[in-house]
Amino acid sequence: MIIDTHLHLIDRSALRYPWLAGVPPLNRDFSYEEYAAEAQRVGVERVLHMEVDVDPADIEAETARVDGLSRQAGSMLVGAIASCRPEDTNFPAYLERQRANPFVKGFRRVLHVVPDDLSEGAVFRENVKRLGGTGLTFDLVVLPHQIPKAIALADLAPDVQFVLDHCGVPDIKGGAEHPWRAHMSEIARRPNVMAKISGVVAYADPGNWTVGSLRPYVEHTIAAFGWDRVVWGSDWPVCTLGGGLSTWVAATHALLSGCSIAERDRLLSGNARKLWRLE
């Protein structure tokens, strides 16, 4: 069984996505039905929705919309990683509203498209600390040079469980491993950080990547974090920039060909089930 921990759904008729205008291939609707038709063919059985950086005014509407989809017969959706703005003083009230909804499993604030110092603000850091003891996770999406910022957050909030998205967003197309490699080894030393094996096909050369070009980045991530601290995500529809869901699933199985069944199962489903308490 595969648990996909990173599905994006886009519905431009219901929500606003300011960033989509700058990414023409993704500037259309991507529905749950379109995703599910392919996902069920490749072995995905449960799914967490990942926030899509909607307009701040639409954040709670996005979560409510996905929650509604999860209630449809046969839905694979079992939870959501909701958007948030820890830099805002109204975050505590927002957090309390989301804690009342068991569908919300964690939060993410996109950091790789904002100033580097956003996560260093006192309000941001105090609000992230509020997640300690709630059981709610915080996804980190940062560029390689920003990983030290993520390390600082993990050190400041040791009681919060962080998830580093997309293997730390390495520049696979450019073949760059430094400072990414050293930074990944360093952040992996924090026991409150897990890594998500996701997104890498979008950072490779779209028409030229192979399993071999992905392997150094995926294998270093797994080696640094260990099999008990990695989860898998499709990053659909962003993965369509690098071949699509079926291609990424096939590449994942090829990358895992030398591991044990137990190791593969922990990455593809077991760790996610335990982390987010999925039935």
Rank of each mutant, 00 (worst) to 15 (best):
T134M: 05
W227A: 01
E62Y: 14
I261L: 12
Y203N: 10
C239L: 07
S83Q: 09
G258D: 14
G68W: 14
V113Y: 09
D55T: 06
H49R: 04
V23N: 06
L255K: 07
T137M: 08
S119E: 13
Q146D: 06
R215M: 07
L255T: 11
S119R: 10
V114G: 00
H49V: 05
T134K: 01
A93Q: 15
R264A: 13
P25N: 08
M76Q: 15
F30T: 09
Q161Y: 09
V54D: 01
G199C: 07
H166T: 09
R181F: 05
Q98A: 09
R41E: 15
M50A: 11
Y94S: 00
D53I: 02
K105D: 02
A182Y: 03
P102C: 09
L140W: 00
Q161N: 12
G212W: 10
D139Q: 11
A154D: 05
D29A: 04
P237S: 10
R65V: 03
P24A: 11
N192V: 07
L214I: 10
R99D: 03
N271M: 06
Y32M: 04
G22Q: 14
Y17L: 07
Q98I: 07
L136M: 15
T137C: 05
P92H: 14
K196A: 02
L26H: 08
C84M: 13
T247F: 04
I151E: 05
I81Y: 05
V104E: 12
P237V: 09
E51K: 09
V160Q: 12
V231C: 02
S269P: 02
G243Y: 08
R190Q: 14
R125A: 10
V230N: 01
V211W: 07
G270W: 15
R264C: 12
A254T: 12
L111T: 01
R181A: 15
G132M: 10
W276A: 00
H49I: 06
V141C: 15
V169P: 05
A250E: 15
T89C: 04
I187K: 00
I261C: 04
D58G: 02
F225L: 02
H220I: 04
P24N: 12
S31R: 13
W248F: 15
L245G: 00
C167Q: 04
I187F: 10
